[in-house]
Design a protein around this nucleic acid. Structure first.
Ligand code: MN
Ligand code: MN
Ligand code: ZN
Ligand code: ZN
Lengths: 121, 121
DNA sequence: AACTTATATGCAACTTAGTCGCAATGGCAA
DNA sequence: TTGCCATTGCGACTAAGTTGCATATAAGTT
C-alpha cells in the first residue's frame, strides 16, 4: 500500500517525518530501533518516538524489546516470531514457523533467544 | 541445594547479601525484579545488580526483560518458557510446555506475549 | 490565495532502570 | 590474629525513552 493511503486511512496528517518513516519501514525487512536509523532520518528523537507510538496504536507497526534494552519496530504484516541471538545480537524474523497455540491464552508475540544459525556453526 | 553449597561450589564468598538473595529466589516461584523486592531486602541496588549478574554468569539464575522495561530474575532449574500478559503484566512460568525446536538454532529462552488465561475470560 | 485551527514538531528538561568509581568493610584462608 | 582481595554502600553517572511548551505546518474553509 502507498504511504499516502496508509496515513489517510487513519486520519493522520502526512508530514515529511511520517513519509520518511513509512518509506524506511516499508523498505527494511528487519525490525529497526531508533539507534539504527537516527543518522539516516531527519527528525528529532521525540518526533520519531511519538510517531512510531502512534503508528503502533493504529496497527501500522508493531514492536518488541530486544536484549540490548532498545525497542525495535517493524511493519505489521502477517504475525511471526522473532529470534534474538545472544551472541551476535542479530534479530531474525521467523516467517516460516507454524504458530503455537496455548489453550486459554491469546498469543500476539513470540520471542526466542539463543544462538542463531550462523553463530552455531 | 543449600545456599552455602551453591555459593561454595562457585568459589564465591557467602556474604549476607548473597544469603538474603538466594533464600528469596529459592522461596519465590516467579521471576523477580529489583523493584519487586527492594523493600524486603537489606542491600544497595548496586549490590543487588552486581550479585544477580554474577549469579547469572555462574548459571545460578537466569533473567529476561519484561514489558515494563525491568529485568526479571529467577532460579535456573529446568528450562521453561514465560508468558507475559499485555493486559495485567503478570508473568507466568509455562512449565508444562513441550520445548520447541528450530533446526540449526539453539534456543535458551522463549517468551510469549499476549492475553493470559484470567484476562481472556 | 489567504485564513483558520487542530495537529505535529524541535528543543530542552526530565525520568528511570541499571552501571561505575572509589573508599571502606568483611569473608576466609593462612 | 592477621592480611588480602572480593564485596559493599554511596553518590555520580548513563542512556533510552518521555514530556511540556512554544512554534510550525497540513489540510480543510472561505
Ligand atoms: Mn519480523
Ligand atoms: Mn520461570
Ligand atoms: Zn548470532
Ligand atoms: Zn493477564
Amino acid at each position: 500500500m502507498q504511504t499516502k493511503n496508509i496515513i489517510e486511512e487513519k486520519n493522520l496528517k502526512l508530514t515529511s517525518a511520517r513519509k520518511e518513516l513509512l518509506e524506511l519501514f516499508g523498505f527494511e525487512k528487519k525490525p529497526i530501533s531508533f539507534e539504527d536509523i537516527k543518522h539516516k532520518i531527519n527528525m528529532d528523537k521525540a518526533t520519531f518516538y511519538r510517531n512510531v507510538s502512534k503508528f503502533e496504536s493504529e496497527s501500522i507497526l508493531n514492536s518488541f524489546e530486544s536484549n540490548d534494552k532498545k525497542r525495535y519496530y517493524e511493519i505489521q504484516d502477517f504475525p511471526h516470531a522473532h529470534f534474538i541471538c545472544n551472541n551476535c545480537n542479530n534479530i531474525e524474523c521467523l516467517e516460516n514457523m507454524e504458530p503455537i497455540k496455548l489453550e486459554g491464552y491469546k498469543i500476539f508475540d513470540m520471542i526466542f533467544k539463543g544462538i542463531c544459525k550462523s553463530c552455531n556453526k
